[in-house]
Design a protein around this nucleic acid. Structure first.
Lengths: 116, 116
DNA sequence: GTATATACCTTTAACTACAAGGTATGGAGG
DNA sequence: CCTCCATACCTTGTAGTTAAAGGTATATAC
C-alpha cells in the first residue's frame, strides 16, 4: 500500500510527545487529537489517524492513558486522559527532547548552517 | 542479534544531519566521524559504526558525498567530503529541523512540562 | 603472544510513521 | 430519495531507520 515516504526526518517520537502533552491539559478523543496537533503546531505538523490510534492503544496498554467511551449525537467517542504513569512518561520524553535538541544546537554552532 | 531498543525517540535523521554538518567543515573518515559526533554533542549523542557507514555509503550513492582512499600507517582511510548536492541536502535538513523544533516549542508553550 | 586501538564493513532485528484502506452514523445539498 | 462530506472508530502493509552484534585486518603496546 504505502508509497510515500515513511519515517520522515526528526519525527520519531514526536506524535507520542504531542499526544501526551495535549492529554495532560484535558481529555480528548482520537479524531480530536488529529486536528488539535495540527492546530497547536501552527499547521506545521500533521499526523494521520493511522498514527494516532495505534499510539493511543499502546499507551493505554502501558498504563499511561485511561479511556472512557461517551456516546455523542449517536456516534461513540473514546476519551483518553493521562494517568500518573502517563505524566511520568511525558516528563521523560520532554527530558529526552531537550537533551537531543541541546546536543544538536551545540553541534551546529559556528557554521553558516548554524542554528543558534 | 539485536535486542536493545532500536529507533530511540527523536533520533531519526539526526545521524545524517550531524554527519553532513561535520563534513561541511572538513573531510573526515568514518571511524573519525563516530568520535567527532560524540565530541561535538558534548557526549550526549553517540552513534555506532553500524549507523555511520551505511549512511556514508547511501549519501555517496546519492551524490551528496565524494570519497577518496588514503593509506595511512598501513591502514586505509576513506575520506568523505560534501559535494554541492550534499550542501543542499544539509540546508534542507537544517530547515526541516528548525521547522519541527519550532512547531514543538509552540505546542509545548504554557505547560508545566513547557519547553520555552 | 596477547590485548587494545584503529579502520573498514555487513547482517539481523526491532521499531515507527505513513498511506491506504475498511466500517458506520449524521447532516447538508441537490 | 440519493449522494456526498464530515465525523469517528479501526487495521493492514510497507518502507525507512537506528542499534547491536558480529566479521576482517593491521599496527602498537605490554
Amino acid at each position: 500500500m504505502a508509497k510515500g515516504k515513511t519515517n520522515p526526518e526528526f519525527m520519531t517520537g514526536v506524535p507520542e510527545l504531542l499526544i501526551l502533552r495535549l492529554l495532560s491539559e484535558r481529555e480528548m478523543y482520537g479524531y480530536e487529537l488529529v486536528q488539535a496537533i495540527e492546530a497547536v503546531t501552527g499547521e506545521e505538523i500533521k499526523v494521520g489517524e493511522g498514527v494516532v490510534y495505534p499510539i493511543l492503544h499502546a499507551l493505554e496498554a502501558q498504563g499511561c492513558l485511561s479511556s472512557k467511551r461517551k456516546p455523542v449525537n449517536g456516534r461513540t467517542r473514546v476519551y483518553y486522559a493521562t494517568t500518573a504513569a502517563g505524566k511520568r512518561r511525558l516528563g521523560t520524553l520532554v527530558g529526552e527532547w531537550q537533551r537531543i535538541t541541546g546536543a544538536i544546537t551545540l553541534a551546529m554552532k559556528g557554521s553558516k548552517h548554524g542554528i543558534a
